[in-house]
């Protein structure tokens, strides 16, 4: 009865046990956040053990939920401790500011992300944008990002309803959903890069 699945579950729950045990004794607020990131890994491992295509379809939402809540909590942490006004140095290495390397790397990531589209593409393209914004210490306009992500959300939900109620138009819905979710994830991720700089 000790198949591969049970063995994997044993490992994953042993990890969860260790992580939660450390969390019980932790008093520092930021260490708590890091440890929660650790136990998230264990829960993703439990999902991965299903080993079907469904597992992947469940991992992607699980991952994105984790990072979104992490960003919100880290921002609450900064405000409650009063660190919000402190400057962030960015990647203020002289070479980074001038050299074309960030541009080239970001371009590769963004192009590949657009080819992938969907969740994965959004994540990868977003990473490229974050890297670029960080290396150029950009202080940008937030509202544009928020509006863009709102529109892409609407596009994607519209595509979902086409899938459900007008299944004949599946091709249209597929492209709408893929592009909508790509834009949505990119804009959200580039928020991280824009927040790297100073408060407006």
């Amino acid at each position: 009865m000790w198949n591969e699945y049970s063995f994997g579950l044993a490992i994953a729950f042993a990890c969860a046990l260790i992580g939660f045990a450390a969390l019980t004794r932790e008093r520092d607020d930021l260490h708590k956040l890091l440890l929660i990131d650790l136990v998230e890994t264990a829960s993703l491992a439990v999902i991965a053990l299903i080993g079907t295509d469904l597992a992947e379809a469940l991992i992607l939402p699980g991952l994105v939920v984790g990072i979104a809540e992490l960003l919100a909590l880290s921002q609450i942490y900064l405000t409650k401790e009063g660190y919000q006004q402190n400057p962030v140095k960015g990647l203020n290495i002289e070479v980074m500011m001038r050299s074309p390397a960030p541009v080239i790397l970001s371009t590769i990531l963004v192009v590949y992300g657009i080819i992938l589209s969907g969740f994965t593409g959004g994540g990868i393209a977003g990473l490229g944008v974050v890297f670029f914004l960080m290396s150029r210490s950009f202080t940008g306009d937030f509202h544009v990002l928020e509006i863009a992500s709102g529109i892409s959300w609407a596009l994607w939900v519209a595509a979902f309803f086409v899938f459900m109620f007008l299944p004949g138009w599946w091709y249209f819905a597929l492209l709408g959903a893929a592009i909508g979710i790509l834009l949505k994830v990119i804009t959200k991720m580039s928020l991280v890069g824009a927040m790297w700089g100073e408060t407006e």
Binding site: A16, V46, L49, G62
Partner: peptide
């Protein structure tokens, strides 16, 4: 804000057993 932060940590930790439970059922 401190209360919200502590509650948020519990909510984030709560997703771990929840997702694990759903995955085990599947």
């Amino acid at each position: 804000q401190n209360a919200a932060y502590q509650y948020g940590l519990v909510a984030l930790a709560g997703t771990v057993p929840m997702f694990a439970a759903a995955a085990m059922v599947a």
